[in-house]
Each structure stands twice: as C-alpha cells, then as structure tokens.
Design a binder for these strands. Structure first.
Lengths: 106, 106
DNA sequence: ATTGATAGATACCGAATGGTATCATGTCAA
DNA sequence: TTGACATGATACCATTCGGTATCTATCAAT
C-alpha cells in the first residue's frame, strides 16, 4: 500500500468531496464557486479541497486573486485502478456468489 | 449519493480493510485466519470485517463454530462503478492536463 | 492609501474512527 | 455436561475528522 493510494482513498471517503469531484467534472471552479453549492462555510470547503489536492484528485492553479480548482484525471484513474486487482478473481467468484449470498442471509 | 455508496467508500478508506480484501481475493478465510495476517487483536480485525460487511464488500457464512469471510464481487464492482461518472470527461481533460499540472507547480 | 473581495491559517468543538481489554455466547467434542 | 475454542459484544481510550469562528494576507480598483 502506497501513501499516495491511502491519500486518494481518504479523499474519496467523504460524500461532500465525491460531490465536489462530480461538480468539477462539469467545469473548473474557484473555492468560492464550489462553496456556493454546499451549505457549509467556505473554510470547510477549502479543507475538503485541500484533502482532494493531497489525494491528487484535483489541481489548483492561481488565476489573479482566485484559485481555480481543476479535476485531475490521473489521480482519479489511479484510484480506480486499485479495483483492477480483483479482475482475475471475479469470474470465478461470480459463479458461486448466489449460493454465498443465500448463506449470508441466515 | 446513496447510503450504500457511502458505506462502501467508508469501508475502503482504511488500508487494513483494503488489505483484507486483497487477502480474501486469494481465498476465503475465517476471522482468526484473517487476524493472523495483521499485528492487531482479533477484535480489531473483527471490527474491520464488520465494516467491510456493512459496505457489502464481503459475505459472511457460518461454518460450524467459525465464520468464513468471502469476497463480494458485487459490492466491489459497485464501488468501482462510481468512477464511471468521469468517463465522459476524461478525454477532454487529458488533452489539457499537462498544462494544468505545470501551473499547479507554481 | 483605503477599501472590499478572495483566500490562507489557526484554534477549537463534537462526533466518528481505530484500537485494546474484557466478558458473554455458542458450538463442537469427549 | 463439561471444557475448549472461535466468535460476539461492550466499555473505554487516543486520534482523526468534519465543521465553525476568527484572524491575517493578498490583490484589485477607486
């Protein structure tokens, strides 16, 4: 487990932060513009953006006196690639899943 | 954001739990067997397994006096599918990413 | 130079999290 | 029915986390 992987999953663990990523997918936004979409203070949103930045999920570029937050496809793709580990096991698992689910109900 | 999505990402947020999923990908294990792979008490491992179960990442079936933990491909695939939201935006983003990364360095 | 808008930084609070220790439960075997 | 073993469950502790309040810094425009 790399530290970057941990920072990435930590960034994705909060629903507000995942929502921010969906927002930024539709266009780049300043901190204030992101904050308009949530019922919390700008400082709280800034914290979320910092954690997203630490997890490599967004890039931040200074534009005049504002900071424009931009989606970072590389970081998001990197987190998504973690799931690839299971690709080799899924076919076999899915074949017996129904039975296991039934046992789990008991 | 669904509650199940949140429980899923919460389950994945901890490195021990992600490690447990990788372990279970190689074969089903009882709680005690999982605990052998970590330097923490069985109770702590049990907590992690409970959170993984709440996030639909594993199934638990009683076998005699033991409980066998099994990977749940459905839950893991469901979490992985969250990343599909960005598919439509990646091609465009990747085209301009290099420039944005450079600005981010400043 | 002063004002106002945008952002950074810090301290603080309540709740959730990761972990241990401890005790209760249940199941198999003798 | 005992005893041993794998698990369930609870209480407790230190740390992290999400959030607010507050103060400071910077830039732009007048």
């Amino acid at each position: 487990m790399s530290q970057q992987e941990q920072l990435g999953f930590r960034a994705l663990a909060d629903p507000t932060r995942r929502s921010i990523l969906h927002l930024l997918a539709q266009g780049d936004l300043t901190i204030a513009q992101v904050a308009e979409n949530f019922q919390m203070t700008r400082a709280a949103v800034k914290k979320h953006l910092s954690i997203l930045h630490e997890g490599d999920m967004i890039c931040v570029q200074a534009v005049g006196k504002t900071r424009v937050n931009t989606l970072n496809p590389n970081g998001i793709k990197n987190a998504a690639s973690w799931f690839g580990y299971f690709d080799a096991f899924w076919d076999e698992k899915l074949a017996t899943l129904k039975t296991e689910i039934e046992k789990d109900m008991q």
